[in-house]
Simulated assay, not measured.
Amino acid sequence: MTMLPPPTPKKLGLVIDLDTCVGCHACAVACKEWNAGGFSAPLPDEKPYGNAPTGVWFNRVHSYELAAVLVDDEHPPAPSESDTSMRDAGHLGDFDRGVGLDAARAQPPRPDSPDAVVATSGSACGSMSIAAEAAQPAMTLHFPRSCLHCEEPACVTVCPTGASYKRAEDGIVLVDESRCIGCKLCSWACPYGAREYSSVEGVMKKCTLCIDRIYNENLPEAERQPACVQACPTRARHFGDLADPQSKVSKLVAERGGVDLMAELGYKPTNKYLPPRPRRAAPATAAPAEALDTAVLPPVLRWLDRVLSR
């Protein structure tokens, strides 16, 4: 069993903004490119362009379809098993605003609501009314996933050889491949699916937070950040010291209410997720009628207007 260091003075990690992530997979591709520069690189692939490619990915992006949320927050329907909410899309905490339309349709409308009147004309009309009242329209949530560099990582404490370890100076969790025996205990212990087994080398792999970049003094200071952060086209990924309350990432977490992934497990992940901002469906308004001044039209068009207006 590998021991953990005392609380680290620095907590280097990522802040991922789910509001601006568009699911382009640029983070995964950039990570693969930086860490797969040759057979001896951290991410070697065997026959990457064949019919049965094998390899390891440190970054993955999952996409989830989220159901609409109702306007009536004071009388929310009870959730059902058919709900598709933020919690279902990765257990991201309690910032999901509600329930799916299936649960909403299962609840009778309140007597004083517009649905009570519409529902009397048929179930189809009632469903259309509920959908029209959606305050949070249905949306797609893109959820990037990688190692969270937990403060109390289970993957480290179960390692029988000490190959998995947590750095005392900055909190980054790494794997010493020279000591790894490929037993896969760390992958079974990690609830986030951040560990992968390399069948090419017979050892476990994980995100290194691009430690070879962030401490590389030969690179310009602006480039001393993980490859996934630098490649993100929408700036949905941020890197910094989350132990410093005055750092940009800490202020961003405080302003946007950043959350831990599956905080109830008690592993205290360093990486934080910023919830999507509420979206309001555009009100359905009729387009204003265009006034036609027939006096300025040529004679032929005035005649045509009279014919078509009959």
Rank of each mutant, 00 (worst) to 15 (best):
L209M: 14
P278M: 08
E255G: 03
N271Q: 06
A41V: 00
R145L: 08
P109Y: 05
I16T: 09
F58P: 00
E133D: 14
C232K: 04
E221W: 04
L43Y: 02
K268W: 07
V29W: 12
F39E: 12
G202Q: 09
E221F: 07
G90E: 14
T2Y: 04
E152W: 07
G258S: 04
P276Y: 05
G240F: 02
E221K: 08
Q246W: 01
I130M: 15
I16C: 07
L297G: 05
P226L: 10
A291K: 08
P109S: 10
G182A: 07
T54F: 11
D83N: 09
G93W: 01
M139V: 09
G240S: 06
R280N: 14
H91W: 10
L308S: 07
V253N: 06
D19M: 02
P233G: 01
C228G: 02
T161Y: 04
V61G: 06
D102N: 14
V249Q: 11
P245S: 06
N35L: 05
P160Y: 08
V200H: 10
R110K: 14
L185N: 04
K166L: 11
A231N: 04
L43S: 07
R195G: 00
D244H: 04
E223M: 14
R110I: 03
T234R: 12
P108V: 05
P137I: 01
T208G: 08
A189W: 09
G100W: 07
G193S: 01
A138W: 05
E255W: 00
V173D: 02
C210I: 04
P153R: 03
P226W: 14
C210P: 01
V173S: 05
E290V: 15
P53K: 05
M128R: 10
A236F: 01
P108K: 15
S187M: 12
S164A: 10
T54V: 12
P76E: 11
L308T: 02
L261G: 00
P153D: 08
D293W: 02
Q230K: 14
E290R: 11
L301I: 01
T120D: 13
Y197T: 03
L292H: 06
C228S: 09
I130R: 15
P42Q: 10
M128E: 10
K251E: 15
D112R: 14
N51Q: 15
V56D: 11
P77Y: 00
V99H: 10
N59Q: 12
Y165V: 07
P42K: 08
C210Y: 06
A291T: 06
N51G: 15
G193T: 00
